[in-house]
Design a protein around this nucleic acid. Sequence first.
RNA 1: GGUCCCUUCGUCUAGCGGUCUAGGACGUCGCCCUUUCACGGCGAAAACACGGGUUCGAUUCCCGUAGGGAUCACCA
Length: 443
Amino acid sequence: MTVTRFAPSPTGRLHAGNIRTALVNWLLARQDGGRFVLRMDDTDLARSSEASAVSIRADLAWLGLVPDVEVRQSERFALYDAALARLAAAGRAYRAYETPEELELKRKVQLQRGLPPVYDRAALALTQADHDGKAAAGIAPHWRFRLDTATPIRWHDGVRGDCHFDPAALSDPVVRRADGTWLYMLPSVIDDIDLGITAIARGEDHVTNSAVQIQMFEALGAPVPQLAHMALLTGADAALSKRIGSEGVDAWCAAGIEPQAVVALLARIGTSQPVEAVANVADLLPGFALSSFGRAPARFDPGDLLALNARTLHLLPYAAVADRLPDGMGEAGWLAVRGNLATLAEAADWQAVIAGPVVAAAEAEDRDFIVAAATHLTGLDWGDDIWARWVAVLKIETGRKGRGLFHPLRHALTGRDTGPEMAALLPLIGRAAALARLHAAAA
RNA sequence: GGUCCCUUCGUCUAGCGGUCUAGGACGUCGCCCUUUCACGGCGAAAACACGGGUUCGAUUCCCGUAGGGAUCACCA
């Protein structure tokens, strides 16, 4: 069974990149009936906020990506303490005392010499007496994970294929600060082990982290999950970004974007599969494959969202939108109108056309025709096929056809030049209202 | 500066030495579906970054150049 996780730090709202990561992990889990875990990475208490956690949950719910379990790292520190102790006992974690400033200086010097800015492991040479001295002086250590620099790191990546890293080019990561607070690297691994995570899909900004974390999994005696690193999304041009906002859910919501459009785009962008509208996130499940992701960064254009949104609306069933439709709009109204919508909000405009009032003066040359049309309509039995029968009669009686026949009727009845099929609209408008509008138009 | 990844139509991509006069999708344009919008159908324009190799033959392999992305934190 596949168990995946989405591990945001609650320091802000979700954005396109985040959402794609969440979506891909959700798809991976759901594809074989596995579990999807939401893990709040809130080890950095100062930057994390409850408000962010709440908004992340809300955003995921809106998108339809509901987790099976949620955990927060801030409640799991005891687990991390125990794991670090094991690592220390095994010689895979050690204490160090350099200040950030000292480390910064060392890095600068290395860079100037054209050397990779890797931690020199000076702390490894410290004796017990050195440690005692620090303790006596009231200086607490921070902890580093000791990499095994002798063994090349390899893994088969779900999207990048075979990957390899030379651990000697990597620094032993600091895993815990002197004040006892935790950094991302190790707790993430400990949780992945504890929660039984079997697959991790994330952005390629994590590849070197993965190299380090692979050694952590091994040092902790746990199997390494399947790893996959997706190329990052790059933004489109500024004009479009400003219009819809590539920032996140709230902006999309405000612009009338449906969650289905968001997930449909994000699930396929950067893959070899075509972007297509879906009525439900689950419709993305069949055929989803990490291997279809390209390795080059893909451009995310929020403008595409608008077009996809329209296509999404065109196929949404009544049940999916019923509670958000304008008063008075039933299933027939929705089906008649959805094909003409770019955003759901526009449904209200069409409901106004259906329910009226509509007054649209006919062109001078069409007045007689409209009068005749009203007369013929009066003589017909009302029914769902009224439009077809009415138009057929008018065609014969007035000799009009094509645009000259249809356009004046559409305009008089709806006040507009374009819109949904009149055959669907007329029964919704109703006999009395239709006649009233025709008379008004001809007056 | 080190390391890793990438470079095919406007966009996302297929392509894993000859089947490529380079395929698909979105977008664009045109035609059709006896009005419009939409849907659908049909069709069109549109791409192998550059330079060297290797080879009988390179989009495909190698090297270099240029360009792009990522990373080298006591952020996550």
